[in-house]
Protein backbone atom coordinates (compact mmCIF):
# COMPACT_ATOMS: atom_id res chain seq x y z
CA UNK A 1 0.00 0.00 0.00
CA UNK A 2 1.44 3.35 -1.01
CA UNK A 3 1.28 6.52 0.97
CA UNK A 4 -1.05 8.63 -1.08
CA UNK A 5 0.45 12.08 -0.81
CA UNK A 6 -2.04 14.52 -2.16
CA UNK A 7 -0.83 18.11 -2.46
CA UNK A 8 -2.79 20.51 -0.25
CA UNK A 9 -4.37 22.15 -3.25
CA UNK A 10 -5.58 18.76 -4.53
CA UNK A 11 -9.21 18.61 -5.46
CA UNK A 12 -11.69 16.16 -4.10
CA UNK A 13 -10.13 12.67 -3.89
CA UNK A 14 -11.54 10.16 -6.35
CA UNK A 15 -11.94 9.57 -10.06
CA UNK A 16 -14.56 10.98 -12.39
CA UNK A 17 -16.44 8.51 -14.58
CA UNK A 18 -17.63 10.31 -17.67
CA UNK A 19 -21.24 9.68 -18.59
CA UNK A 20 -23.39 11.52 -21.08
CA UNK A 21 -24.50 14.79 -19.55
CA UNK A 22 -21.79 14.99 -16.82
CA UNK A 23 -19.96 12.52 -14.65
CA UNK A 24 -20.01 10.46 -11.48
CA UNK A 25 -17.33 10.79 -8.86
CA UNK A 26 -16.17 7.50 -7.47
CA UNK A 27 -14.33 7.53 -4.17
CA UNK A 28 -13.97 5.60 -0.94
CA UNK A 29 -15.70 6.97 2.13
CA UNK A 30 -12.45 6.91 4.13
CA UNK A 31 -10.75 9.11 1.57
CA UNK A 32 -13.61 11.58 1.61
CA UNK A 33 -13.66 11.75 5.40
CA UNK A 34 -9.91 12.19 5.62
CA UNK A 35 -10.00 14.84 2.91
CA UNK A 36 -12.68 16.75 4.79
CA UNK A 37 -10.89 16.38 8.11
CA UNK A 38 -7.55 17.56 6.82
CA UNK A 39 -8.91 20.72 5.27
CA UNK A 40 -10.71 21.98 8.32
CA UNK A 41 -8.35 21.66 11.24
CA UNK A 42 -9.28 23.92 14.12
CA UNK A 43 -6.27 24.73 16.26
CA UNK A 44 -6.43 25.33 20.00
CA UNK A 45 -5.04 28.68 21.11
CA UNK A 46 -2.29 27.30 23.27
CA UNK A 47 0.96 29.21 23.58
CA UNK A 48 3.24 29.12 26.55
CA UNK A 49 6.13 31.25 25.37
CA UNK A 50 8.04 32.71 22.42
CA UNK A 51 6.69 30.33 19.76
CA UNK A 52 3.20 31.64 20.47
CA UNK A 53 4.21 34.97 18.92
CA UNK A 54 5.34 33.24 15.75
CA UNK A 55 2.06 31.34 15.79
CA UNK A 56 0.29 34.70 15.96
CA UNK A 57 2.43 35.89 13.04
CA UNK A 58 1.35 32.82 11.10
CA UNK A 59 -2.24 33.80 11.81
CA UNK A 60 -1.75 37.40 10.73
CA UNK A 61 -2.26 38.72 7.23
CA UNK A 62 1.23 38.17 5.84
CA UNK A 63 1.43 34.40 6.40
CA UNK A 64 -2.26 33.74 6.91
CA UNK A 65 -2.72 30.09 7.79
CA UNK A 66 -6.41 30.33 7.07
CA UNK A 67 -5.49 29.63 3.44
CA UNK A 68 -5.10 26.02 4.53
CA UNK A 69 -8.17 25.84 6.71
CA UNK A 70 -6.69 26.61 10.12
CA UNK A 71 -8.25 29.96 10.78
CA UNK A 72 -10.86 28.93 13.32
CA UNK A 73 -8.61 29.14 16.36
CA UNK A 74 -10.55 27.96 19.38
CA UNK A 75 -10.03 28.97 22.97
CA UNK A 76 -11.54 25.81 24.37
CA UNK A 77 -10.10 22.35 23.81
CA UNK A 78 -13.58 20.86 23.37
CA UNK A 79 -13.91 22.49 19.96
CA UNK A 80 -10.37 22.00 18.72
CA UNK A 81 -8.86 19.33 16.48
CA UNK A 82 -5.19 20.15 16.67
CA UNK A 83 -3.10 21.45 19.54
CA UNK A 84 0.01 23.39 18.58
CA UNK A 85 2.35 23.20 21.57
CA UNK A 86 3.99 26.58 21.12
CA UNK A 87 6.56 26.89 23.84
CA UNK A 88 8.27 25.23 26.76
CA UNK A 89 6.36 22.77 28.91
CA UNK A 90 7.40 22.79 32.55
CA UNK A 91 6.58 20.29 35.26
CA UNK A 92 3.78 22.43 36.65
CA UNK A 93 2.21 22.79 33.20
CA UNK A 94 2.47 19.11 32.20
CA UNK A 95 -0.73 17.94 33.96
CA UNK A 96 -2.60 20.88 32.43
CA UNK A 97 -1.40 19.96 28.96
CA UNK A 98 -2.46 16.35 29.50
CA UNK A 99 -5.86 17.51 30.62
CA UNK A 100 -6.28 19.81 27.63
CA UNK A 101 -5.38 16.93 25.34
CA UNK A 102 -7.86 14.64 27.09
CA UNK A 103 -10.60 17.22 26.71
CA UNK A 104 -10.20 17.45 22.94
CA UNK A 105 -12.62 15.34 20.92
CA UNK A 106 -11.26 12.52 18.74
CA UNK A 107 -9.66 12.54 16.23
CA UNK A 108 -7.02 14.88 17.63
CA UNK A 109 -3.59 15.85 16.47
CA UNK A 110 -0.55 17.40 18.11
CA UNK A 111 2.16 19.61 16.66
CA UNK A 112 5.24 20.25 18.79
CA UNK A 113 6.39 23.69 17.70
CA UNK A 114 9.96 24.67 18.38
CA UNK A 115 12.94 23.23 20.16
CA UNK A 116 11.45 23.43 23.65
CA UNK A 117 8.37 21.39 22.85
CA UNK A 118 10.44 18.93 20.83
CA UNK A 119 13.19 18.21 23.32
CA UNK A 120 13.48 20.89 25.98
CA UNK A 121 15.70 22.80 23.55
CA UNK A 122 17.81 25.54 25.14
CA UNK A 123 16.46 24.56 28.54
CA UNK A 124 17.63 20.94 28.42
CA UNK A 125 20.65 21.14 30.69
CA UNK A 126 20.81 22.25 34.31
CA UNK A 127 17.16 23.11 34.70
CA UNK A 128 15.03 21.62 37.43
CA UNK A 129 11.59 22.38 36.09
CA UNK A 130 11.51 21.85 32.32
CA UNK A 131 9.94 18.78 30.72
CA UNK A 132 12.46 17.56 28.16
CA UNK A 133 10.06 17.31 25.26
CA UNK A 134 6.29 17.49 25.18
CA UNK A 135 6.15 13.89 23.93
CA UNK A 136 6.83 12.80 27.50
CA UNK A 137 3.30 13.99 28.22
CA UNK A 138 1.20 13.54 25.07
CA UNK A 139 1.85 11.85 21.71
CA UNK A 140 3.11 14.21 19.02
CA UNK A 141 2.35 13.94 15.30
CA UNK A 142 4.62 16.57 13.78
CA UNK A 143 7.76 18.18 15.20
CA UNK A 144 8.95 21.58 14.02
CA UNK A 145 12.57 22.61 14.48
CA UNK A 146 13.63 26.15 15.30
CA UNK A 147 13.84 28.50 18.21
CA UNK A 148 11.35 29.84 17.43
CA UNK A 149 10.44 28.35 14.03
CA UNK A 150 9.55 30.78 11.27
CA UNK A 151 5.87 31.03 10.36
CA UNK A 152 6.68 29.23 7.11
CA UNK A 153 8.01 26.31 9.13
CA UNK A 154 4.74 26.17 11.04
CA UNK A 155 2.80 26.27 7.76
CA UNK A 156 4.93 23.40 6.51
CA UNK A 157 4.19 21.45 9.67
CA UNK A 158 0.48 22.03 9.21
CA UNK A 159 0.64 20.87 5.58
CA UNK A 160 2.61 17.81 6.68
CA UNK A 161 -0.10 17.07 9.19
CA UNK A 162 -2.71 17.38 6.44
CA UNK A 163 -0.80 14.89 4.33
CA UNK A 164 -0.60 12.52 7.25
CA UNK A 165 -4.34 12.73 7.77
CA UNK A 166 -5.08 12.26 4.08
CA UNK A 167 -2.89 9.17 3.91
CA UNK A 168 -5.08 7.66 6.63
CA UNK A 169 -2.14 5.77 8.10
CA UNK A 170 -1.15 5.25 11.70
CA UNK A 171 2.22 6.16 13.09
CA UNK A 172 3.40 2.53 12.95
CA UNK A 173 2.27 2.08 9.35
CA UNK A 174 4.13 5.22 8.32
CA UNK A 175 7.21 4.00 10.12
CA UNK A 176 7.10 0.60 8.41
CA UNK A 177 6.64 2.18 5.01
CA UNK A 178 9.42 4.59 5.66
CA UNK A 179 11.72 1.68 6.49
CA UNK A 180 10.66 -0.22 3.37
CA UNK A 181 10.57 2.52 0.77
CA UNK A 182 12.88 5.00 2.34
CA UNK A 183 10.42 7.81 1.87
Amino acid sequence: MDVKVTPPSAPFPGSVQEIPGGGIVLSTLDDVINWARSNSLWPLVFGTSCCAIEMMSAASAKYDFSRFGFEVARATPRQADVIIIAGTIVNKMAPVLKRLFDQMPDPKYVIAMGACATSGGPFFYNTYSVVKGADHVIPVDVYVAGCPPRPEALLHALITLQEKIKSGLTRDQIRTQFAENGK
Binding site: T48, G87, T88, V90, K92, Y125, N126, T127, Y128, V130
Partner: peptide, 25 residues
Protein backbone atom coordinates in the same frame (compact mmCIF):
# COMPACT_ATOMS: atom_id res chain seq x y z
CA UNK B 1 5.10 29.13 37.61
CA UNK B 2 3.39 27.50 34.64
CA UNK B 3 6.32 28.62 32.54
CA UNK B 4 8.99 28.80 35.27
CA UNK B 5 11.99 27.56 33.30
CA UNK B 6 14.60 27.98 36.05
CA UNK B 7 16.65 30.44 34.00
CA UNK B 8 18.41 31.78 37.09
CA UNK B 9 19.64 28.31 38.08
CA UNK B 10 20.63 27.54 34.53
CA UNK B 11 22.67 30.74 34.19
CA UNK B 12 24.85 29.68 37.12
CA UNK B 13 26.43 27.07 34.87
CA UNK B 14 26.66 29.14 31.68
CA UNK B 15 29.53 31.41 30.70
CA UNK B 16 29.12 35.16 30.40
CA UNK B 17 28.80 34.89 26.63
CA UNK B 18 26.30 32.06 26.80
CA UNK B 19 23.88 33.31 29.42
CA UNK B 20 22.72 36.20 27.26
CA UNK B 21 20.78 33.95 24.92
CA UNK B 22 18.51 32.70 27.70
CA UNK B 23 17.37 36.27 28.32
CA UNK B 24 16.08 36.60 24.74
CA UNK B 25 13.60 33.92 25.66
Amino acid sequence: GYIHRSIEKMCESLSYRQFIYTTSR
